[in-house]
Design a protein around this nucleic acid. Sequence first.
RNA 1: GGCGGCGUAGCUCAGCUGGUCAGAGCGGGGAUCUCAUAAGUCCCAGGUCGGAGGUUCGAGUCCUCCCGCCGCCA
Length: 516
Amino acid sequence: MTGSKTFYLTTPIYYVNDVPHIGHAYTTLACDVLARFMRLDGYDVKFLTGTDEHGQKVEKSAMNAGIAPQEFTDRVSKNFRDLVSLMNFSNDDFIRTTEPRHIASVQELWRRLESAGEIYLGSYAGWYSVRDEAFYGEDELTTSPSGKKIAPTGAECEWVEEPSYFFRLSAWQDRLLEFYEQNPDFIAPAGKRNEVMAFVKSGLKDLSVSRTTFKWGIPVPGNPDHIMYVWLDALANYITAVGFPDESGEYAKYWPANLHMVGKDILRFHAVYWPAFLMAAKLAPPKRVFAHGWWTIEGQKMSKSLGNVIAPETLVNTYGLDQTRYFLLREVPFGNDGDFSHKQMVQRINGNLANDYGNLVQRSLSMIGKNCGAAVPQPGAFTEADDALLGAARNLLPIVRAEIRSQSFHKALDAIWAVIGDGNRYVDEQAPWALKKTDPARMATVLYVLAETIRHLAILTQPIMPEASAKILDQLAQGPEARGFDRLGAGGALVAGTPLPTPQGVFPRYVDEAKS
RNA sequence: GGCGGCGUAGCUCAGCUGGUCAGAGCGGGGAUCUCAUAAGUCCCAGGUCGGAGGUUCGAGUCCUCCCGCCGCCA
């Protein structure tokens, strides 16, 4: 699988203290589907995910748990590694920001920024609330009767000044705008791109990139009183994972990244700060950042207080793994916010998966099993209808490829499902059960066309639903070597006479227990 | 407050540079095949395309204003 075509994509590194929820699963799922697709399409793919393990809050949580920060993160980062196996993610690496490779990488990045004159030592001053651990702007504060400054949260603030290193972000405003202009696909969706550009146009201030108020982080080279700003630390994981500061090897092969997938809340860091850091360090910026949306649950925002946070495990256990993967990418145009509801999930499972896809496979394969000696039937000459269906199936790859590459997963699925619909219509029109008595040879041709169509569908649904698609391909006696996209089209066509196993249902209907 | 977006059939939404653009899916109603997971297929929605003006031979599709949502920024 080594070739000149490479594709490097990343999820954000997840804040290690979080408990994985549907949002984390969604982000990584989108990347997983893209990664699997590109691999099947012949690319040399590197797919990275991981955990962000530094910062004051981690330090405190560890203290509360009565253990050292490293031990604490070792423990909780497992939650995210478990998510990988739960969701059948195919990442090639799992990075943790506490790893030595990362510390070396970030410190080298710092040195390059510093030697390029992009970092200077100044002081960070402002109204600080110890209780909130946050700075507030003068205009956000109110004054109490006793003359104290009060934050919107009601916390008392004090004026503090601490030495801090700054990154000359203000100097990058014009170059960033130029970069956005020259790379119109750098930020997606388009609406988000406009927001980012408006933000940059409104003026950038130099960015504080070190703190002296906590210790759990990566020390600034040459001045260990300072701990690096968490985002500088976190963002650099993307180059750490390809071997930076070694710029040969994987770095040369994979960098710049083809895609950073992020939630919309962290777009600014990836679309403004990150390219600025990289360009300032004379490194190439990534090619694209995609900001996806949020999920609500049954119409309500997910929140701990409402108690409606959905664990990915719950979804998988309730509805099935591939069903969950399918739903998340089919239900909502990728990039938009979406709502998860039990009703819609059941609708998708029973309508799209069981009735449309599953049933097409089952009715076709079962007729072959019963009427064609459990082997791939011998086709005769193809009719116009046969060619139409086969043509639709064989033309799917370029359509699906274009959609997947632009992260329009829902459109890719729409295109595949259009052919599934064609397939079901074809069965009705050709009525092979009637041909069985009148024209067995024609029946064999019809069933062959169906099997060959299903082969295409199953190969193409592998990235979204790896397990279910594999089951279908098993039933067509297509081994692992016959499942790449290079086998799509007439060249990889099923060979008549190939013995087939007894077909089994792949997408069971979901029956609501409450109603039965 | 500034900038941007949105408001199209019950629901979720497609509709690029103005003239088959009044559509799809789901729900709902009706018909039908019987191979299949009580699955499939076919037909039916008369929605002033948020409101009011304007440009044009002609506007969901462009302009202005208003109303209602949402995002980003301050």
